[in-house]
Amino acid sequence: MADASFGFSTLQMGELAIGKHVQYILSVEKKKDSFESVVMDHLRMNGAYWGLTTLDLLGKLDSVNADEVISWIMTCQHESGGFSGNIGHDPHILYTLSAVQVLALFNKLDVLDIDKVATYITGLQNEDGSFSGDMWGEVDTRFSYIAICCLSILRCLDKINVEKAVSYILSCKNLDGGFGCTPGGESHAGQIFCCVGALAIMGSLHHVDKDLLGWWLCERQVKSGGLNGRPEKLPDVCYSWWVLSSLIMIDRVHWIDKEKLVKFILDCQDLENGGISDRPDDAVDVFHTYFGVAGLSLLEYPGLKAIDPAYALPVNVVNRIFFGR
Protein backbone atom coordinates (compact mmCIF):
# COMPACT_ATOMS: atom_id res chain seq x y z
CA MET A 1 0.00 0.00 0.00
CA ALA A 2 1.52 3.29 -1.04
CA ASP A 3 0.65 5.20 2.08
CA ALA A 4 3.67 7.50 2.08
CA SER A 5 2.29 9.66 -0.66
CA PHE A 6 -1.44 10.08 -0.57
CA GLY A 7 -1.91 10.38 -4.32
CA PHE A 8 -3.10 14.00 -4.22
CA SER A 9 -5.11 13.59 -7.34
CA THR A 10 -6.56 17.04 -7.87
CA LEU A 11 -9.37 15.63 -9.92
CA GLN A 12 -10.67 13.71 -6.95
CA MET A 13 -10.45 16.18 -4.17
CA GLY A 14 -9.96 19.65 -5.49
CA GLU A 15 -7.11 21.84 -4.43
CA LEU A 16 -6.32 24.31 -1.74
CA ALA A 17 -7.24 27.71 -3.16
CA ILE A 18 -4.16 29.41 -1.77
CA GLY A 19 -4.61 32.73 -3.61
CA LYS A 20 -8.25 33.06 -2.52
CA HIS A 21 -7.42 32.39 1.10
CA VAL A 22 -4.66 34.97 1.14
CA GLN A 23 -7.07 37.50 -0.31
CA TYR A 24 -9.72 36.57 2.23
CA ILE A 25 -7.39 37.02 5.19
CA LEU A 26 -6.18 40.38 3.95
CA SER A 27 -9.78 41.49 3.41
CA VAL A 28 -10.94 40.57 6.95
CA GLU A 29 -8.78 43.32 8.38
CA LYS A 30 -10.47 45.92 6.20
CA LYS A 31 -14.05 44.90 6.99
CA LYS A 32 -14.46 46.71 10.25
CA ASP A 33 -18.02 47.83 9.75
CA SER A 34 -19.91 44.59 10.05
CA PHE A 35 -21.61 43.57 13.27
CA GLU A 36 -19.54 40.37 13.42
CA SER A 37 -16.28 42.24 13.38
CA VAL A 38 -17.37 44.52 16.25
CA VAL A 39 -18.49 41.50 18.29
CA MET A 40 -15.04 40.01 17.74
CA ASP A 41 -13.28 43.28 18.49
CA HIS A 42 -12.04 42.11 21.90
CA LEU A 43 -10.04 39.20 20.46
CA ARG A 44 -8.35 40.99 17.61
CA MET A 45 -4.98 39.80 18.97
CA ASN A 46 -6.04 36.16 18.50
CA GLY A 47 -7.32 37.10 15.05
CA ALA A 48 -3.94 38.58 14.19
CA TYR A 49 -2.25 35.35 15.23
CA TRP A 50 -4.68 33.17 13.24
CA GLY A 51 -4.49 35.30 10.13
CA LEU A 52 -0.77 35.94 10.12
CA THR A 53 0.19 32.35 10.91
CA THR A 54 -2.03 31.23 8.03
CA LEU A 55 -0.31 33.71 5.73
CA ASP A 56 3.08 32.42 6.85
CA LEU A 57 2.08 28.78 6.25
CA LEU A 58 0.91 29.83 2.80
CA GLY A 59 4.23 31.59 2.19
CA LYS A 60 2.70 35.07 2.11
CA LEU A 61 3.62 36.72 5.38
CA ASP A 62 5.38 39.47 3.45
CA SER A 63 2.06 40.76 2.13
CA VAL A 64 1.45 42.61 5.40
CA ASN A 65 3.30 45.56 6.86
CA ALA A 66 5.20 44.06 9.78
CA ASP A 67 6.02 47.41 11.42
CA GLU A 68 2.37 48.42 11.55
CA VAL A 69 1.37 45.12 13.14
CA ILE A 70 4.17 45.25 15.68
CA SER A 71 3.46 48.79 16.75
CA TRP A 72 -0.25 47.96 17.20
CA ILE A 73 0.72 44.89 19.29
CA MET A 74 2.92 46.98 21.52
CA THR A 75 0.13 49.50 22.18
CA CYS A 76 -1.88 46.58 23.57
CA GLN A 77 0.70 45.88 26.26
CA HIS A 78 -0.23 46.97 29.78
CA GLU A 79 1.81 48.11 32.74
CA SER A 80 1.50 44.60 34.24
CA GLY A 81 3.34 43.17 31.24
CA GLY A 82 0.28 41.38 29.86
CA PHE A 83 -1.40 42.11 26.55
CA SER A 84 -5.06 42.82 25.87
CA GLY A 85 -7.11 41.53 22.97
CA ASN A 86 -7.31 45.02 21.54
CA ILE A 87 -6.74 48.63 22.49
CA GLY A 88 -8.95 49.62 25.44
CA HIS A 89 -9.47 46.10 26.77
CA ASP A 90 -7.91 44.52 29.85
CA PRO A 91 -4.81 42.31 29.71
CA HIS A 92 -5.30 38.55 29.65
CA ILE A 93 -3.01 35.57 29.20
CA LEU A 94 -4.99 34.50 26.10
CA TYR A 95 -3.84 37.55 24.19
CA THR A 96 -0.38 37.63 25.69
CA LEU A 97 0.49 34.34 24.00
CA SER A 98 -0.92 35.52 20.67
CA ALA A 99 1.14 38.72 20.89
CA VAL A 100 4.31 36.76 21.61
CA GLN A 101 3.58 34.26 18.83
CA VAL A 102 3.05 37.00 16.25
CA LEU A 103 6.30 38.70 17.29
CA ALA A 104 8.03 35.32 16.91
CA LEU A 105 6.59 34.97 13.40
CA PHE A 106 8.20 38.27 12.46
CA ASN A 107 11.42 37.39 14.28
CA LYS A 108 10.86 40.45 16.45
CA LEU A 109 10.89 39.03 19.97
CA ASP A 110 13.64 41.53 20.72
CA VAL A 111 11.15 44.41 20.88
CA LEU A 112 9.83 42.86 24.10
CA ASP A 113 10.90 43.50 27.64
CA ILE A 114 11.03 39.76 28.22
CA ASP A 115 11.30 39.97 32.00
CA LYS A 116 8.21 42.08 32.15
CA VAL A 117 6.10 39.65 30.12
CA ALA A 118 7.53 36.70 32.04
CA THR A 119 6.73 38.37 35.36
CA TYR A 120 3.12 38.84 34.28
CA ILE A 121 2.78 35.15 33.41
CA THR A 122 4.64 33.71 36.38
CA GLY A 123 2.44 35.84 38.62
CA LEU A 124 -0.59 33.94 37.37
CA GLN A 125 0.59 30.55 38.61
CA ASN A 126 -1.41 29.36 41.62
CA GLU A 127 -0.29 27.37 44.62
CA ASP A 128 -1.58 24.09 43.14
CA GLY A 129 0.41 24.61 39.94
CA SER A 130 -2.56 25.76 37.85
CA PHE A 131 -2.72 29.10 36.04
CA SER A 132 -5.31 31.85 36.14
CA GLY A 133 -6.20 33.64 32.95
CA ASP A 134 -5.89 37.06 34.55
CA MET A 135 -6.21 38.76 37.93
CA TRP A 136 -9.81 37.57 38.26
CA GLY A 137 -8.82 34.00 38.89
CA GLU A 138 -10.51 31.90 36.23
CA VAL A 139 -8.55 28.62 36.19
CA ASP A 140 -8.37 26.37 33.16
CA THR A 141 -5.80 24.01 31.63
CA ARG A 142 -5.97 26.26 28.55
CA PHE A 143 -4.15 28.83 30.62
CA SER A 144 -1.56 26.25 31.70
CA TYR A 145 -0.72 25.61 28.06
CA ILE A 146 -0.62 29.28 27.23
CA ALA A 147 1.66 30.13 30.13
CA ILE A 148 4.03 27.27 29.42
CA CYS A 149 4.15 27.79 25.67
CA CYS A 150 4.70 31.51 26.10
CA LEU A 151 7.46 31.19 28.70
CA SER A 152 9.16 28.54 26.62
CA ILE A 153 9.18 30.78 23.53
CA LEU A 154 10.67 33.50 25.73
CA ARG A 155 13.25 30.95 26.95
CA CYS A 156 12.35 31.33 30.60
CA LEU A 157 10.32 28.29 31.56
CA ASP A 158 12.53 27.97 34.62
CA LYS A 159 10.73 30.93 36.18
CA ILE A 160 7.70 28.86 37.14
CA ASN A 161 7.28 25.73 39.21
CA VAL A 162 7.29 23.20 36.37
CA GLU A 163 6.77 20.18 38.60
CA LYS A 164 3.57 21.63 40.04
CA ALA A 165 2.41 22.74 36.60
CA VAL A 166 2.75 19.14 35.40
CA SER A 167 0.97 17.72 38.40
CA TYR A 168 -1.97 20.10 38.03
CA ILE A 169 -2.41 19.07 34.40
CA LEU A 170 -2.29 15.42 35.45
CA SER A 171 -5.01 16.08 38.01
CA CYS A 172 -7.23 16.95 35.04
CA LYS A 173 -6.58 13.61 33.32
CA ASN A 174 -9.65 11.46 32.82
CA LEU A 175 -10.35 7.76 32.78
CA ASP A 176 -10.72 7.87 28.99
CA GLY A 177 -7.14 9.11 28.72
CA GLY A 178 -8.18 12.67 27.82
CA PHE A 179 -8.06 15.93 29.75
CA GLY A 180 -10.59 18.52 30.87
CA CYS A 181 -10.58 22.21 31.87
CA THR A 182 -10.31 21.53 35.60
CA PRO A 183 -10.19 18.33 37.68
CA GLY A 184 -13.23 16.21 36.82
CA GLY A 185 -13.95 18.14 33.60
CA GLU A 186 -14.96 16.12 30.57
CA SER A 187 -12.35 15.34 27.92
CA HIS A 188 -12.47 17.66 24.96
CA ALA A 189 -10.12 17.69 21.98
CA GLY A 190 -9.22 21.36 22.43
CA GLN A 191 -8.42 20.80 26.08
CA ILE A 192 -6.45 17.66 25.19
CA PHE A 193 -4.32 19.70 22.80
CA CYS A 194 -3.60 22.18 25.59
CA CYS A 195 -2.63 19.52 28.11
CA VAL A 196 -0.68 17.31 25.72
CA GLY A 197 1.03 20.38 24.25
CA ALA A 198 2.00 21.69 27.66
CA LEU A 199 3.31 18.28 28.71
CA ALA A 200 5.23 18.02 25.43
CA ILE A 201 6.93 21.35 26.02
CA MET A 202 7.79 20.29 29.58
CA GLY A 203 9.21 16.94 28.40
CA SER A 204 6.52 15.04 30.29
CA LEU A 205 4.61 13.09 27.66
CA HIS A 206 5.43 9.87 29.49
CA HIS A 207 2.50 10.72 31.76
CA VAL A 208 0.09 10.37 28.85
CA ASP A 209 -1.50 6.99 28.24
CA LYS A 210 -0.78 7.13 24.53
CA ASP A 211 -2.68 4.06 23.40
CA LEU A 212 -5.83 4.90 25.34
CA LEU A 213 -5.82 8.57 24.40
CA GLY A 214 -4.82 7.68 20.83
CA TRP A 215 -7.85 5.44 20.46
CA TRP A 216 -10.18 8.13 21.88
CA LEU A 217 -8.69 10.70 19.51
CA CYS A 218 -8.74 8.55 16.40
CA GLU A 219 -12.39 7.72 17.05
CA ARG A 220 -13.07 11.47 16.60
CA GLN A 221 -12.97 10.83 12.84
CA VAL A 222 -16.51 10.46 11.55
CA LYS A 223 -17.83 9.00 8.29
CA SER A 224 -17.44 12.24 6.31
CA GLY A 225 -13.72 12.18 7.15
CA GLY A 226 -13.94 15.22 9.43
CA LEU A 227 -13.05 15.17 13.10
CA ASN A 228 -15.28 16.02 16.03
CA GLY A 229 -14.13 17.26 19.43
CA ARG A 230 -16.07 14.87 21.66
CA PRO A 231 -17.98 11.63 21.15
CA GLU A 232 -21.28 11.94 19.29
CA LYS A 233 -20.69 15.52 18.17
CA LEU A 234 -20.59 17.01 14.70
CA PRO A 235 -17.27 17.26 12.84
CA ASP A 236 -15.67 20.68 12.62
CA VAL A 237 -12.59 21.87 10.75
CA CYS A 238 -11.07 23.34 13.91
CA TYR A 239 -10.59 19.84 15.30
CA SER A 240 -8.32 19.13 12.36
CA TRP A 241 -5.89 21.09 14.45
CA TRP A 242 -6.76 20.06 18.03
CA VAL A 243 -7.07 16.34 17.34
CA LEU A 244 -4.33 16.05 14.72
CA SER A 245 -1.69 17.94 16.65
CA SER A 246 -2.41 15.83 19.74
CA LEU A 247 -2.23 12.59 17.74
CA ILE A 248 1.06 13.73 16.24
CA MET A 249 2.61 14.61 19.59
CA ILE A 250 1.86 11.11 20.90
CA ASP A 251 2.85 9.44 17.61
CA ARG A 252 -0.56 7.93 16.87
CA VAL A 253 -1.63 10.01 13.88
CA HIS A 254 -1.51 7.01 11.57
CA TRP A 255 -4.64 5.70 13.30
CA ILE A 256 -6.84 8.05 11.30
CA ASP A 257 -7.51 8.19 7.57
CA LYS A 258 -5.54 11.23 6.47
CA GLU A 259 -6.77 11.26 2.92
CA LYS A 260 -10.40 11.48 3.99
CA LEU A 261 -9.60 14.31 6.37
CA VAL A 262 -7.80 16.27 3.64
CA LYS A 263 -10.89 15.94 1.52
CA PHE A 264 -13.16 17.12 4.34
CA ILE A 265 -11.06 20.25 4.91
CA LEU A 266 -10.90 21.05 1.23
CA ASP A 267 -14.67 20.62 1.01
CA CYS A 268 -15.06 23.37 3.61
CA GLN A 269 -13.38 26.00 1.43
CA ASP A 270 -15.29 28.92 0.02
CA LEU A 271 -13.89 28.68 -3.49
CA GLU A 272 -15.52 31.89 -4.56
CA ASN A 273 -14.46 34.33 -1.85
CA GLY A 274 -11.77 32.41 -0.01
CA GLY A 275 -11.72 31.26 3.59
CA ILE A 276 -12.60 27.97 5.26
CA SER A 277 -15.67 27.18 7.39
CA ASP A 278 -16.44 24.69 10.16
CA ARG A 279 -18.40 22.40 7.85
CA PRO A 280 -19.09 22.38 4.11
CA ASP A 281 -21.29 25.29 2.99
CA ASP A 282 -21.19 27.19 6.29
CA ALA A 283 -19.96 30.76 6.62
CA VAL A 284 -16.17 31.12 6.68
CA ASP A 285 -14.10 32.92 9.30
CA VAL A 286 -10.44 33.50 10.00
CA PHE A 287 -10.40 31.07 12.94
CA HIS A 288 -11.48 28.10 10.80
CA THR A 289 -9.32 29.25 7.90
CA TYR A 290 -6.30 29.04 10.18
CA PHE A 291 -7.27 25.64 11.61
CA GLY A 292 -8.00 24.26 8.15
CA VAL A 293 -4.68 25.39 6.72
CA ALA A 294 -2.76 24.34 9.84
CA GLY A 295 -4.50 20.95 9.68
CA LEU A 296 -3.47 20.53 6.06
CA SER A 297 0.08 21.46 7.02
CA LEU A 298 0.05 18.70 9.65
CA LEU A 299 -1.22 16.37 6.94
CA GLU A 300 1.81 17.31 4.82
CA TYR A 301 -0.32 18.87 2.10
CA PRO A 302 2.02 19.98 -0.68
CA GLY A 303 3.03 23.63 -0.92
CA LEU A 304 2.49 24.51 2.73
CA LYS A 305 5.10 25.26 5.36
CA ALA A 306 5.28 22.66 8.12
CA ILE A 307 3.76 23.69 11.46
CA ASP A 308 4.98 22.57 14.87
CA PRO A 309 2.28 20.60 16.75
CA ALA A 310 3.17 21.90 20.23
CA TYR A 311 4.07 25.56 19.72
CA ALA A 312 1.52 26.10 16.93
CA LEU A 313 4.08 28.10 14.95
CA PRO A 314 5.82 27.21 11.69
CA VAL A 315 8.61 24.68 12.28
CA ASN A 316 11.22 27.07 10.90
CA VAL A 317 10.17 29.70 13.46
CA VAL A 318 10.41 27.21 16.33
CA ASN A 319 13.79 25.95 15.13
CA ARG A 320 14.99 29.55 14.88
CA ILE A 321 13.98 30.16 18.50
CA PHE A 322 15.63 27.05 19.89
CA PHE A 323 18.58 26.36 17.64
CA GLY A 324 19.39 29.48 15.68
CA ARG A 325 21.29 31.77 17.89
Binding site: V162, I201, G203, L205, D251, P309
Partner: peptide, 24 residues
Protein backbone atom coordinates in the same frame (compact mmCIF):
# COMPACT_ATOMS: atom_id res chain seq x y z
CA UNK B 1 11.71 6.86 5.18
CA UNK B 2 13.90 9.13 7.20
CA UNK B 3 13.84 12.57 5.62
CA UNK B 4 10.68 12.00 3.58
CA UNK B 5 8.33 13.81 5.91
CA UNK B 6 7.86 17.43 6.84
CA UNK B 7 5.98 16.53 10.04
CA UNK B 8 7.90 14.61 12.66
CA UNK B 9 5.59 12.51 14.85
CA UNK B 10 8.29 11.76 17.43
CA UNK B 11 9.60 15.30 17.76
CA UNK B 12 8.22 15.49 21.30
CA UNK B 13 8.92 11.93 22.34
CA UNK B 14 12.66 12.40 22.23
CA UNK B 15 15.08 14.40 24.33
CA UNK B 16 15.65 17.82 22.86
CA UNK B 17 15.76 21.47 23.88
CA UNK B 18 12.24 21.86 22.44
CA UNK B 19 10.91 19.82 25.34
CA UNK B 20 13.47 21.03 27.85
CA UNK B 21 14.61 17.47 28.38
CA UNK B 22 18.20 18.34 27.52
CA UNK B 23 20.00 21.62 27.63
CA UNK B 24 20.85 23.46 24.47
Amino acid sequence: RIGDHSIDTTRYLCSSPLSHSVGS
